[in-house]
Design a protein around this nucleic acid. Structure first.
Length: 283
DNA sequence: ATTTTCCCCTGCCGGC
DNA sequence: TGCCGGCAGGGGAAAA
């Protein structure tokens, strides 16, 4: 599942390949990919645009064009952005759109589950803010995401801390994997009410989120299932998981047996000893 | 306002 | 062996 480190890995790779290029033509195979609020001229409006750089906020990737317009992409569950120097040798499985560049290179948006989306964003700052307002809060790797900011966002909230970490308006980029890993590192049970964390716990959680995301970026993301980078390669983070997907295995810190439950409708893994359960909840 | 539930999709896996 | 129900989960809409 592409989260911040996976999207950042792709962003860096595509920035190297696409910055300065011009889009020659676009083919959309799956109309569901395109923002329904935009008319059917998606492909035509992208053709001829020159790419300034690739940006990212949370799990959103932005292809930023000269002149200020942008193509926003979200990979959701199974989306892939695969770069090739020329037209792919063989049909790309689950291809939903192809973006051909002026140098002959091609980026294919492939996506088995078809949850991924693409949006065209206007150049006008106000219009873009209006279209995008409230979609994400501060990016988790931004200097603006501080322990203080996290504490302010959590204050008074009664929902489980894991649910709040997954809320992209509180901090953008954390998904199910890195939420589990961060909570373990911070020694905080996923069901603890967010507003009930003490200042030291908030600081630990902030540090843990940064630490795990930084590690994920360093090893090219987590590829326990479909995730592949822009060159089709796997990441290495799945080999560094501390608790996620390790039910029944010993905790790397205290050797207690890692348990699994459901929090915020997501499979959730934690150490019952390192992450003490709040009052009234088992395990 | 906040929290919770449901839904979108399809590949995959366990059970029978 | 093969069918089938259920699960996986990002995020947005709807309900509570």
């Amino acid at each position: 599942m592409p989260e911040l480190p996976e999207v950042e890995t792709i962003r860096r790779q595509l920035d190297d390949r696409l910055a300065g290029r011009t889009i020659a033509r676009v083919q959309v195979d799956d109309p569901l990919l395109v923002d329904p609020e935009h008319p059917g001229d998606f492909a035509r409006r992208l053709s001829g645009r020159s790419i300034a750089r690739l940006g990212r906020t949370g799990k959103y990737l932005f292809v930023e064009f000269d002149g200020g317009e942008a193509l926003a992409l979200h990979l959701r569950m199974t989306g892939q952005l695969l770069w090739s120097a020329g037209p792919p040798d063989a049909p790309v499985p689950y291809a939903r759109a192809e973006f051909a560049m002026d140098d002959g290179s091609v980026v294919t948006f492939a996506d088995a589950r078809r949850f991924g989306r693409a949006w065209l964003l206007p150049a006008d700052r106000r219009a873009r803010d209006r279209a995008w307002a409230g979609r994400t809060g501060v990016d988790a790797m931004s200097p603006r995401f501080t322990a203080r900011a996290l504490g302010t966002s959590l204050a008074g909230r009664t929902a489980a801390i894991k649910a709040l970490l997954l809320d992209q308006r509180i901090v953008a980029g954390v998904g199910n994997i890195y939420a589990d890993e961060s909570l373990f590192r911070a020694r905080i049970h996923p069901l603890r009410p967010g507003g009930g964390l003490g200042p030291a716990e908030v600081r630990r959680l902030h540090r843990a989120v940064r630490d795990r995301l930084r590690m994920g970026i360093a090893v090219g993301g987590a590829s326990f299932d479909r995730y592949r980078d822009a060159h089709g390669e796997r990441g290495g983070m799945q080999d560094l998981f501390l608790v996620h997907r390790r039910e029944g295995e010993p905790c790397p810190r205290c050797r207690a047996v890692i348990c699994k439950g459901v929090v915020a409708q997501r499979g959730t893994y934690w150490c019952p000893r390192c992450q003490p359960a709040p009052e009234g909840s088992a395990c």
